[in-house]
Design a protein around this nucleic acid. Structure first.
Lengths: 112, 112
DNA sequence: AGCTACACATAGCGTCCCTACCCATGAGCG
DNA sequence: CGCTCATGGGTAGGGACGCTATGTGTAGCT
């Protein structure tokens, strides 16, 4: 899968990963790896800036904690973040519906 | 739908629109509008450069024709373009499967 | 002492779509 | 005739955003 395909959908992935639990950045990356069956292997340079964007946008808040001498920044969704997640999910559904339709939802090419 | 969501999937849309027929740029835009139920309204500044990219990549070829005194550039898929289209469709399926899995398309999250 | 895993972070780059324009022709209208 | 609109193609410049590469520091193992 070409990595650029994620453009515009990364926020949704991060919000969904944080839905119902709090995780630190590193754990988010691992959760996405597992949740995607290994298909998503996001580099830290992608995830950390994205989390800061989400924090700036008010969709997540972070808390520092120290575990085993290592500092972790743990993120959790805000109310606005949950709203954003719902919006992202709905936008995703609409998006896939539209693209599926154009790519041939009507069976015009279905069996080649 | 936020327009940026298309990023990385525009080529697939254009190739799919040209699948089995030849169209000129303007007609492609209209075909996408109709094929998407009005959801996709791509500006010419998006479509024309994209078509030139596809031509440079060898996925489409263009022919000039004159209809009613107006010059049209008509595009059609090449063999490589059809191959690319198949690849795009398969990449799209994989992509949606992965994202759906994370976003919880299967009801895993459905009722929180 | 050196290496690996954990954990966070920034800088710079390239891609790619968008906004905003520009050009040309033909038809309809005043 | 001159204006505007629809049709049709095109470029320029910018901004958003994910990626690559790199840097920092701790802990634990050998």
């Amino acid at each position: 899968m070409k990595p650029d395909a994620l453009r515009g959908h990364l926020d949704a992935l991060l919000l969904a990963t944080l839905d119902g639990r709090e995780l630190h950045g590193y754990a988010i990356i691992e959760a996405l790896q597992q949740g995607s069956g290994g298909a998503l292997d996001l580099p830290t340079g992608t995830v950390y800036p994205a989390l800061r964007r989400l924090e700036r946008a008010g969709h997540v808040v972070s808390d520092w904690s120290t575990v085993g001498g290592r500092k972790r920044r743990t993120y959790q969704l805000t109310q606005a973040g949950q709203r954003a997640l719902r919006a992202e999910r709905s936008a995703w559904r609409e998006f896939t519906t539209v693209i599926d339709g154009v790519l041939g939802g009507d069976g015009k090419w279905a069996q080649t």
